[in-house]
């Protein structure tokens, strides 16, 4: 029972998303007033925004903004990464770049991979992190590039990308116990993965890195907000025009006025 409550409470943001979504849809469906419809639509879209933001949130993570203190340290690896970036884009997952990058990364990363007791789980989880919303700004900037090279072992990299992903999935299943069944809650699964994940977090702080929220969903949702605002504007503008043309914005009244016009036409057509 306690587990159950925990399960519900842990996911409170998803419940908010679902409630908002359904409320919005219901308003669109049930309200006859066009402006209310638009508002419902807005609510519906807002729920999606929250959903995306939830997605990008990482426990303990901060906003994806550079914090000065870390700049020096990360600068090296960054400089390296960016230098390699242009060529990387052309060659994709070019081995050279991937191997170059770790040189700039602190040696401790090598320790992590060599030394942890659960290399299987740890490695897999790292690969998974790269699959999941990228975990820090550097990752986000470089995608699957040097950052990954630094963290995930080279053994994994020798494998083709797809295979690597598969392996990591399987590994995660064994390590993370309930991941696939848990459905929507990947992050939850991630945290429940326990020791390995903690070890990873520890590794991060050991590196002096700051954990960021995933910026990509935020960027996406900014776009979606723009689209939503535009839709609302067009919808409201249409409502205004409808008010001008019909003198009302109540759907049932509009419908009956349209029906009269329609039936008039149909009657004429039947006459021929």
């Amino acid at each position: 029972m306690e587990n159950w409550i925990e399960f519900v409470l842990e996911r409170y943001n998803y419940w908010i998303v679902i409630t908002l979504m359904m409320t919005g849809l219901y308003i669109v469906y049930a309200r006859g007033n066009l402006v209310k419809k638009v508002v419902g639509l807005n609510l519906f879209q807002t729920s999606v925004f929250i959903f995306y933001i939830t997605m990008g949130k990482i426990a303990g993570g901060t906003a994806p903004i550079y914090i000065g203190g870390e700049l020096d340290h990360a600068g090296e690896s960054h400089g390296n990464g960016q230098a390699g970036e242009k060529s990387l884009e052309r060659e994709g997952h070019g081995e050279e770049n991937l191997h170059d990058a770790p040189e700039g990364a602190p040696a401790s990363s090598g320790d992590l991979h060599g030394g942890t007791d659960a290399p299987q789980g740890g490695d897999a989880l790292h690969a998974k992190v790269e699959n999941l919303p990228a975990n820090d700004l550097k990752d986000a900037l470089k995608g699957v590039d040097p950052g990954q090279g630094a963290e995930a072992g080279e053994g994994l990299h020798a494998l083709p990308h797809a295979e690597a992903a598969k392996i990591s999935n399987e590994a995660l299943k064994s390590a993370g116990k309930t991941f696939p069944e848990k459905g929507f809650e990947v992050e939850g699964a991630l945290h429940q993965a326990g020791d390995a994940a903690n070890a990873m977090d520890g590794a991060h702080s050991a590196l002096g890195e700051v954990i960021y929220s995933n910026p990509l969903p935020h960027v996406l949702i900014l776009t979606a907000i723009v689209v939503g605002v535009a839709t609302t504007a067009v919808g409201l503008a249409l409502a205004v025009r409808i008010r001008e043309a019909y003198g009302t914005i109540e759907e049932d009244e509009l419908e009956s006025m349209d029906n009269v016009a329609e039936f008039g036409d149909a009657a004429e057509a039947r006459a021929i």
Binding site: M55, P133, V186, L216, P217
Partner: peptide, 10 residues
Amino acid sequence: GLLYQATGTL
């Protein structure tokens, strides 16, 4: 969004 959550890519 759900696909992104499952894969981390768009």
